[in-house]
Design a protein around this nucleic acid. Structure first.
Length: 281
DNA sequence: ATGGGTACCTGTCTGC
DNA sequence: TGCAGACAGGTACCCA
């Protein structure tokens, strides 16, 4: 479910409530995509130092539980259906974990709960981001689209030699991270690039439009989600989702907002793509 | 190296 | 109403 904006909104919502807290207990539900990689009790007593994001992954940096011990942290992915919320201790006591709550981190500042019906998400322990499972998961990630490092050249260079469609190349995550299926369609529409164009044939000027479109759309989505962050602690976990109106995604047959031509739907790499056959070439 | 397909799991929607 | 089947916003892995 979540693409980069939802993950970033989640980070912004969770971080203030959990930073500085000390872990008191971990409760695991059904198995997630990957095992935790450590004994849950090994996390007790550690302090949450902060929450950062890499692509669609969140990294909860932890302090050491004993002098001389490495801090490490937890790498969390929401998968397709995951959401995080922070409950007060009273709320956590009143609302015990449900069938789809597969990770509860009880702390001195409340309970961080992962709700993930489809269990494509994961929480993985790691010494740091540069070793072990974490490094493996992050190794082929592309540039952060909201960073200063992201520009037309990054796309152009990343697309070079790739015959897959530009839509699939954007989605692959090894050129630019965080652009999921919805925002890939939306960005290509905004950049007026036909989604089936081979990636290697997207020249620099169009890469420039696409880079700008990706930035604008992701920024707008984060802002839309961010506007409802005030009560994140008590939110239902879907805070920030669906805030951005789509121009093409899920609108097959509806008139294009620019030219009234019916929006088309095609399948690329088993994923639905929506586009305007007239505006995008 | 690239690209295509499959797999993971379950809730929701669609059509008979 | 009941039920089978399609579909869903992610990503690792296998194979050609």
């Amino acid at each position: 479910m979540p693409e980069l904006p939802e993950v970033e909104v989640t980070r912004l919502g969770v971080a203030p409530h959990i930073t500085g807290a000390t872990i008191q207990a971990i409760r695991l539900g059904k198995p997630l995509r990957w095992p935790l990689g450590c004994e849950p009790d090994a996390l007790v007593g550690r302090q949450v130092l902060g929450v950062s994001r890499r692509g669609k992954y969140l990294w909860f940096a932890l302090g050491s539980a004993a002098p001389g011990q490495s801090g490490g942290g937890l790498l969390l992915h929401l998968g397709m259906s995951g959401s995080l919320r922070v409950l007060t201790a009273d709320e956590a006591a009143a609302r015990p974990a449900g069938v789809h709550d597969h990770f509860d981190m009880h702390t001195t500042q409340g309970c961080l709960r992962l709700h993930d019906p489809r269990r494509f998400g994961a929480v993985v322990w790691g010494d740091d981001l540069n070793s072990g499972t974490c490094a493996k998961l992050l190794q082929s990630l592309g540039v952060e689209p909201l960073s200063d490092d992201f520009n037309a050249q990054v796309l152009h260079k990343g697309f070079a030699g790739r015959r897959v469609s530009v839509k699939q190349a954007v989605l692959a995550g090894d050129v630019v991270v965080g652009v999921g299926n919805i925002y890939a369609s939306e960005a290509l529409f905004r950049a007026r690039i036909h989604p089936t164009t081979p990636a290697q044939r997207v020249a620099l000027p169009r890469c420039k439009r696409l880079a700008q479109a990706i930035r604008e759309i992701l920024f707008a989505a984060v802002q839309a989600g961010g506007s409802s962050l005030k009560d994140f602690r008590n939110a239902d976990g879907t805070t920030g989702y669906f805030q951005l109106m789509t121009a093409v995604y899920g609108r097959e047959g509806e008139p294009c907002t620019l030219c009234q031509t019916p929006i088309k739907r095609v399948v690329q790499g088993q994923r639905a793509t929506y586009f305007c056959p007239r505006c995008q070439h």
